[in-house]
Amino acid sequence: MSAVPIPIRATGPHPAAAALAARADAAITRRAKPAAPASTGYRRARAPEWIVRAMAMLAGIALFVALWEIVARQGGRIPAPGAVWNAAVTIFSDPFYSKGPNDQGIGWNVLSSLKRVGIGFGLAAAVGIPLGFMIGRFKFLSDMSAPIIAMLKPVSPLAWLPIGLLLFKAANPAAIYVIFVCSLWPMIVNTAVGVRQIPQDYLNVARVLNLSEWKVFTTILFPAVLPYMITGVRLSIGVAWLVIVAAEMLTGGVGIGFWVWDEWNNLKVEHIIIAIFTIGIVGLLLEQALVLLARRFSYS
C-alpha cells in the first residue's frame, strides 16, 4: 500500500477554480487517508501532515521575529518585537475609544477604512458587473471599450485622487471614488471574460430547449459566470485594500492609512508596525473569506 496521496486531477473551468479545486482536493486526500494497518509501523515513523505544517509555520514566524529582533538591536529606530507587543496589548485593550476626530481607537480606524472599501467596491460591482455582462455578450461593445479599459487599467488608482477631490470637494467621497475606480476594472474584465468563456455546449442546450432569455440568464449565464465574478471580487478587494491605505494617507480623516501617517508624525514607530500587521491580517481575512465563497460556487 502506498502512503503517498494520489493527486486528484483538478478539472476546473478556469485556473482560479482549478486552483481552488486542487486545494479542496488536497484537503480531501488529507482527510481520506486510509487507516493504515497497525502492523506496518510506517505511519508511526512520520508525524501527521498537519503537525509538520504547523511546525513549519511556527518556525517561519519564529525566524521572522528573531531576524526582527536582530535588526532592532543594531540600534536605529526600529522597535524590538517585545516593545511592539506591549504597545499592541495597550492599543487592542481599548480599540473603540473616541477622543475627537483625530484620536480614535484602532478598531474605529479599521472599520472606517473597511467602510470606504465596502462602499467603493459595492458601487464598482453595481456598475462593473452589468457592464461586464454586456461587454462579454456583445462584440461591438467589447471592441468599443477594449482600448479604453486597456489604457486606464494600468493607471495607479491614486492618480485619480485629484480628480476625485476636484469632483467631490471632500476627502471621504474622494477616497471612496478612488476605491471605485480601482475596483471597477477587475470587475468588468473578469465578468466579461466569464461571459465569453461560457461553453457553447451550455448555450446550445438553451437553444435546443428554446429557453426564455430570463431563464437563460438565471440558469446558464449567471451560474456559469459566477466563479469568474468572484475572482473579480477577490482581485478588486485585494487592490482596494492596498489602495485605501495610500489614499487615506493623502486625504486624512479617520482610517487605518491616516492613522499610519498620524503615528509617523508622532514618531510612534511601534504603532506603525502594529498598523502594518493589522492591515496585513485584515487583508488576509478578506482574502480567505472570498476564497471560501469561491469554493462554495466552484462546480468542478
Binding site: D201, Y202, N204, V205, T219, I220, P223, A224, Y299, S300
Partner: peptide
C-alpha cells in the same frame, strides 16, 4: 460531451 449544467 453530455452538456449537463454542472450547477444543477
Amino acid at each position: 460531451n453530455h452538456s449537463l449544467l454542472p450547477w444543477l
